[in-house]
Design a protein around this nucleic acid. Structure first.
Lengths: 259, 259
DNA sequence: CTGTTAGTTTGGGTACGACCAAATGAGCGG
DNA sequence: CCGCTCATTTGGTCGTACCCAAACTAACAG
């Protein structure tokens, strides 16, 4: 560091002898974003209200419009505001929803190239609990959604339709749990598994039938609010599904060892 | 598509008679961000490599620097790049990690003001599975972390230290599961519960003792790779904890009905 | 020769200023 | 009263200039 032996103010001007620790200079846009985020999360602005226009914020904060815009962009990416153009546009306060978690989870799955095995394992970990909560808290509307998805699965259409209906049903279970955290998490997980299971080519009529039956059984347990049965059956279902997928994956890996 | 009845080029200039559907014009910065994000996720750039400097991207894309910067800011918020200043600075490719999920989950919890009951419920849903996976995949290093956290809990220091050590232990269990998704999720959840449980004033010596014992039992099951015991004991532990917290919360709610 | 210091270069951060595009509302004519 | 046009508001983009931070470089002093 700088020396510490100069305490003798010689003749002439005096030099202050301060000791400063290395200091961090946060970016102006971050400061603004942090402030606005804090206010939003604290509930200062009711959902749907518009923040002041950019030029107004410029006047208030005395920052440049560039900086203000960057701050707003940060909040937009974090799902805290929604920005609309045009007259009476602006940054409208929005509470983050499930899609917020879902997109982040998707990014991590793709970015880290999480293996299919890990995805299935995670689903085995979380979804039985979802089913239990669904059995506990389901509403009649939830049952309608579950039945609709099951009907779509029974339709024997093209593969993509089956997979989509499959995802819809799993998502419906998560929604029926009435737990936003789990819903967002499971939504991203189901979609990722769907994407990875596509082109896997192990879905045959047999698998479809088994899946449909399992879904119906679980749905019934949820309908009867039978928490234990819902958990038990879901555990079995996702485990069997995982086993089947992984078996095919291994076989495929052997078939095409170079890939 | 476009109509088919205009095949008569009259005299003079010809006016094309096209039918255009309302089209959405995506923002330039989003287009760039989407493109870069796709490349990053596809693995075009190894982690740690730097994207071209902003002015270089300006030259390549023929967009303004403002636009380029906004795109980079988006990627930064999404945790896909890390921006450093100074010479040899720039946007360095980064794979999103657990902290990415954790921050999003935290935002949702705060923004939606998720009730403590829901948080505890979610933990009851996820953490037993974490414990099971931890028992399955734990390494010796994981055990060290768990033991260290338990030792800190036994220390009988101030409340904040106890709560911190408590969080550390729960996070250590999640880490020991070696599942990035669950780790990020549980990390945010534990911290949120910690924050909500603070000032709750129900942590007494009795609770501390019980917690320590439960943690030790679970740690032992993880050490012995006893999957069933780990799951069972964790289920019991988090359930009891939740019950205790909620009971106190109810009592507090009755004591101070106005708040 | 060595160490320190003062440039120099390369990068991001901020500030204006101008103009474009979209959405809305006011005013005007039918 | 209806519909059209036009002005206004507000975000989106552009370009330029300048500042600050970090790392490298060369010159200078010892």
């Amino acid at each position: 560091m700088t020396d510490s032996t100069n305490a003798a103010p010689a003749s002439g001007s005096i030099r202050a002898d301060v000791q400063l620790s290395p200091m961090q200079v946060p970016k102006a846009s971050d400061v603004l974003a942090d402030d606005l985020r804090e206010r939003i999360l604290r509930g200062d602005f009711p959902e749907g209200t518009a923040l002041p226009p950019e030029r107004e914020l410029v006047a208030q904060t005395r920052m440049s419009r560039t900086t203000v815009r960057e701050a707003l962009r940060i909040l937009e990416v974090q799902g805290l505001v929604q920005i609309r153009t045009g007259r009476s546009g602006g940054a409208f306060v929005k509470r983050p929803g499930e899609e917020s978690i879902a997109s982040t989870v998707s990014l991590l799955i793709r970015g880290r190239q999480v293996r299919l095995a890990a995805l299935l394992e995670t689903r085995e970990a979380v979804e039985p609990a979802c089913a239990q909560l669904a059995a506990k808290y389901r509403t009649d509307a939830d049952l309608v959604a579950l039945d609709r998805a099951n009907d779509a699965i029974a339709l024997e259409g093209p593969l993509a339709d089956f997979l989509q209906a499959n995802v819809d049903w799993h998502v419906a279970v998560a929604v029926a749990s009435h737990n936003e955290l789990l819903t967002g998490f499971m939504g991203a997980l189901s979609r990722a598994i769907y994407a990875a299971t596509d082109n896997q080519g192990f879905i045959n009529a047999e698998v479809r039938k088994t899946t449909l039956q399992a879904h119906r059984n679980i749905t019934e347990a949820i309908r009867k609010r039978d928490v234990a049965a819902a958990g038990r059956r879901m555990t079995k279902h996702v485990h069997e599904y995982a086993s089947a997928v992984l078996e095919v994956e291994d076989r495929t890996a052997i078939d095409v060892p170079g890939d």
